[in-house]
Structures are given as C-alpha cells and as structure tokens.
Write a protein that binds this DNA or RNA. Structure first.
Length: 417
RNA sequence: GGAGGGUUGGCAGAGUGGUAAUGCAGCGGCUUGCUAAGCCGUGACGAUUAAAACCGUCCGCAGGUUCGAAUCCUGUACCCUCCGCCA
C-alpha cells in the first residue's frame, strides 16, 4: 500500500511505476475518489460535532432531542455515502504497486534483467551428464511416478539418501543463519486472508495461485515470508530493537495455476516444497535498506559458495518485479540438464509497502511513529536446489558427491547404488 | 464437538446509558548538595493547516437500538478454564 499523500505528490511517478510493472491502475480515479472522500469526511465531522455538543448538554430539552433525531438521519445518509466512496477508494488503493528504486532497469520481460555477477563456472563433464530425473530415479532417492499416483500432477516422494540430503540442507542452512544472529522460526502455513493482502500477494488476480482451505478465511502459504512478515502485524516496535532478523522454515504450497505446461518434469516446479526464508523488519531508511538488501544477498551467496554451486546474480527489471517490491535480485544456480541457470533465490526490498498493509510500525528515538521497512530473501528452497546438487556433482558412474559442508549432517559423502 | 469466563493505551487496571479513573514504564522538561528522589507534561489515527490549536474517530472486529453506547441487542474473531476426542 502506498501513502495517499505520496500518490498526490508524486502522481506521475506512480503512474510510470504501474506502467513499467505491466499493471493497469487508474490513478486519476483514485485521486478523484480521494478528493470526494475528504469532502464527505468534513461534512460527517461537522454533523458529529453538533451531535456531541447537544448530547453533552444534560438533561436535553425537547428541541435538542428533535435536532438530534434529524442529525441522526442526516448522518445515516452521509455516512452511507462515505462508506461507498471509501470502499471503492480502498479497493483501488490495493492495486497500486510499489514504485521501483531509481537504479532498477525499466523493461517488459527477462531480456531487460541485468546480470550483475557470476560465481564459479558452469560445470564441465568428461562424460555425458544425466539429468536429475534419471540420476535420482536410478539411485532411488526420489520417486516421481508414485508421487503423482498419490499426490497428482507435480507430486513426488523424496526417499532414502534423497530424504536425508533434503533434511541436511535445511538444518545446515537454519544453523548457519542462526549463527549469524537471525532468530529461527518454524512458521505456520495455514494463514488468514489478511496476511496475504498484507504481504502484497493479494489482490492482483493472484488468488488462483494460492490453495484455499474449505474454511473461508484460511489459505496455505506459498512462502514463510507471509506468516513471518505478518508476525508483528498491528504492533508498534521500538527503534532500538530494529532491525529484527528472522529466518523462517516452512513447507510452501503453490498451485502454479498459470504455469501449465511449464517445467513439467522433475523437481523444478512442484506444488509442495520446503523453504528457509530470511525476513527482516527494519526502520524507515533507504540507506539502511540498500545495506540490508546486500547483506541478505551475501548470506544466500555464501550458502551457494559453501555448497560449491555455480550461480549468477541478476538485477530484475521492472516488468519482472512483484507489485510490492522496490528492488529485486534473483540468484540463478547452474543446472546442467537445462544447460542454463535456474532461479533458486529471490531477494527483495519491500520498503513500507507491506508494513502499511500490516500496520507494522516503530517508535523512533524522538518518539515519533513511523512505518517499518520489510525485506525477504530465500536462504534455501528444496527440492529445487537438489537438482543443482545432483546434476552438478554427478560422477561418471552415476553416483553423487555430497558437498563437504553437508557431510556432518548427512553422515555420508556420496550417494551410490 | 460441548459448557462457562474474558478482550479497555507499551503494561497493569477501574468504569452497567450522559465528555474513558488510576498506577507503572518509556520519552521530554523543571527542581534539588548527598547512594536518589520529587514535580510538570506526554496515547494512536484522521481531517484541517505553512505548522499547530480547535475538531472528528478509536474500549477485539462488524452491525443494530438510542437525542446520546465501553456500557443494551445481534453476529463474529481471538484468548483462558473445564468436559469429550486425539498425534
């Protein structure tokens, strides 16, 4: 959510932001409703003031009671009118996307993303490499056929050392970030609707991507960003306690409704996976925002470097950004079977966009109240990251070498038949 | 699943139809020659504004009754206690 005052003062910027993010927003209509809304508010306030004056005279005389009855009726009409205008206004406000920072490249699609960095080099093999499906199936570390038999399209079982490797990844990552001062969370994934509006996943027509439970107000979260960011919703924090650095583990559920026919094979795009997410709640400060964003980036890269996986860092263009984001980096990790880098991490500055929707505020040192900034970045998401591990570390004999840092957690250093 | 109790500012806690007590904490100021204390001020949001004051709203949330609602009525969310079931 943007500040209506900001929209009034930076109308063109907001219009450009929507256009560059490929969104249609009628900003002029919002401003019209806003003017209308404020006019009605004044009228309502005047009537209420008069009512208060009368009702504070005690006991009321019969003239007062008559006038009171009239005010009551007038208020009923005007307040109804106000509610209609405000409902419409609030609805439109939910569709205004956040404004990209100045260094974000403008562009419609992935061709406008900027590659900022490459680490490592794409793995070269002196034999014909296999894809993770063949490798994993041969080693019996996951089972896709029975996965879809039981769970449906995109279903899978992780099995044997595959299951252990997955858990090892998770625990290694959780431990690493906790040692960096992040507070570890295991977050709920059954969440109320307000959290999805709060994080900015709703509206925009994205409701179809989220699993809805029969219970009307419950959804399955697609990322721990949703519950963990909402953790402090409705609260006023102290500046001295900021930034709050959280690392949340959770299962993630995604309908992938818009992705039929895309990445249909293997473990790349699945309905149900596990992710460890870095979430930071900081103060309202753009300089600090850049610094925290880079820090979250460094944490993710460190993990990939310790796993020895080749990756690249992208600065995402406006058209590839989500609505709530000021600025976004993606990390793509080398996946030999795709002969390309595949997205494994996503790192965003949300500014006060989510905090406004979730009412996360803080008291500054001079006792003023301000909205927080929020951030999130993947730490690790599995099983997608397993594709990179399995394919990059495959050996000629079809076995898979386990990255050294994971061995203390797996208890084995190679997966073979 | 059933029964009962509760939700008031950062925290504690009064208030059963007529302007929401009080205490503690935090912040700001004043005062004082004795381990420190005392005194004064200070809620959030909105509208207006150059900024403010005045004003309006806020007693979990949403409606309703009333000239007037924290208080009465209806619905609903969450918390607590007990019973039942249960990994």
């Amino acid at each position: 959510m943007l500040d209506i005052q900001y929209i009034r003062q930076n109308t063109q910027k907001v219009k450009d932001a929507a256009k560059n993010k490929n969104r249609k927003v009628d900003v002029d209509q919002i401003l019209k409703l806003d003017a209308n809304r404020r006019e009605i508010i004044s009228a309502v306030q005047k009537l209420r003031e008069e009512r208060n004056v009368i009702s504070n005279k005690r006991p009321p005389c019969s003239d007062d009671i008559e006038r009171g009855k009239k005010i009551k009726n007038e208020l009923k009409t005007v307040e109804k009118n106000l509610k209609e205008v405000e409902d419409e206004f609030n609805k439109l406000m939910l569709y205004v996307p956040n404004v990209p920072l100045d260094d974000v490249p403008i562009g419609k699609d992935s061709t406008s993303n900027v590659e900022l960095k490459k680490w490592g080099t794409p793995t070269e093999f002196d034999f014909e490499p296999k894809d993770h499906i063949e490798l994993g199936t041969n080693l019996d570390i996951f089972d896709l056929d029975r996965g879809s038999k039981i769970s449906g399209f995109r279903g899978y079982f992780l099995k044997n050392q595959g299951a252990i490797l997955h858990m090892a990844m998770m625990f290694y990552t959780m431990k690493k970030l906790t040692e960096k001062g992040f507070t570890p969370f295991i977050a709920p994934t059954v969440v109320k609707t307000f959290t999805l509006f709060g994080s900015g996943h709703f509206p925009w027509g994205s409701e179809q991507d989220v699993y809805s439970l029969n219970d009307e107000d419950s959804y399955l979260a697609g990322t721990a960003e949703i519950p963990v960011t909402a953790y402090h919703s409705g609260e006023t924090l102290n500046e001295s306690d900021l930034p709050k650095k959280y690392v949340g583990f959770s299962p993630c559920y995604r309908r992938e409704a818009g992705a039929y026919g895309k990445d249909t094979k293997g473990l790349y795009r699945v309905h149900e996976f596990w992710k460890i997410e870095q979430v930071v709640i900081g103060k309202n400060d753009l300089d600090e925002a850049i610094q925290i964003h880079e820090e979250l980036q460094k944490n993710a890269e460190e993990i990939l470097q310790e796993l020895n996986l080749p990756y690249r860092q992208l600065l995402m263009c406006t058209g590839e950004m989500g609505e709530p984001q000021h600025k976004k980096y993606d990390i793509e990790t080398w996946m030999p079977s795709r002969n390309a880098y595949g997205e494994t991490h996503s790192n965003s500055i949300m500014g006060e966009f989510q905090a406004r929707r979730l009412e996360i505020k803080y008291k500054t040192k001079d006792n003023k109240v301000n909205y927080c900034f929020t951030y999130n970045n993947t730490a690790i998401a599995s099983p997608r990251i397993l594709i990179a591990i399995i394919e990059n570390f495959q050996q000629k004999d079809g076995s898979i070498k386990i990255p050294e840092v994971l061995v203390p957690f797996t208890g084995f250093d190679v997966i073979k038949k």
